[in-house]
Design a protein around this nucleic acid. Structure first.
Lengths: 142, 142
DNA sequence: TATTGTTATACTCTATAACTATA
DNA sequence: TATAGTTATAGAGTATAACAATA
């Protein structure tokens, strides 16, 4: 199994996620929740289904995730003004503070991953290769 | 989410696994089953728990997986001669033929991934970086 | 006592169909 | 009719505890 891309990819992803989970164990934050909060922070007011799709989460599965973030007082849904079917997503005041802390904690984790790779240049090389695998169409803003 | 290693890794892994699943849909073979058959083929006679551990599968979860490979007539358990608690794992005659086919089909998939990456050199660069993330101690033989 | 394989079980993630309220 | 969000549900994948057979 020494040169099999998919296998190596899976093992590396599990290893990185395990470090992520250890890092955020105290904040009770999973990767999916992290990515949702980061995306709402970057694009407040975006529609619920847009956020879900951008993260590759089915809108049906996004509901419980968002319920939990609301229950914890970190994010909120607001009825769309023009289209009353839709919900626009926002961080609460507490959510904004939480995301600041989260970003600081995340940096520890990410620095550790960059160190494992051997530096930021190696990180950039890795991400470029991963983008080729994913077939990223263009550079997005997120 | 443009430079986050864990996120990019997850997306790339999903993309590669989806191609894998499409490629093997006709053979009804999942990545875990593929890896088990490949590992038994490379190391026939190895103990059940050893195979499971090497693939990062809990021995409790390995049972159903192995049951299915046996039911399909591809692999078999044999009682250990010295330690009668253990099972040594082997391919059947049909399993050996199946693995040959499987390897050929896999090559199609892998060539597609290498093409996405831009060639075998890029593939090698990727795997080297992934090994750094995983913290692979030495080169293994699998 | 400890280990191998097993069973039972629970929790997360993911996928689909069907409902509701709006458009 | 179609869409946004929701509910219910089912299937994988994964984790732990406890058991029987054997060491």
């Amino acid at each position: 199994m020494d040169r099999i891309v998919g296998y190596k990819l899976r093992r590396a992803q599990l290893s990185v996620f395990q470090d992520f989970l250890r890092t955020f164990a105290g904040m009770n934050l999973r990767p999916a929740e992290f990515s949702v909060l980061a995306l709402i922070a970057a694009h407040p007011g975006r529609k619920q289904t847009e956020i879900a799709e951008q993260l590759g989460i089915k809108r049906a599965n996004f509901v419980a995730l968002m319920d939990d973030l609301e229950r914890r007082g970190l994010a909120e849904r607001r009825k769309g003004a023009t289209d009353r079917r839709s919900h626009s997503l926002h961080l609460t005041e507490e959510g904004i503070r939480f995301v600041d802390m989260m970003a600081a904690v995340w940096r520890e984790h990410e620095e550790r991953m960059i160190a494992r790779l051997g530096g930021e240049e190696e990180r950039d090389r890795l991400i470029e290769l991963l983008d080729r695998l994913t077939g990223t169409p263009d550079e997005s803003t997120d």
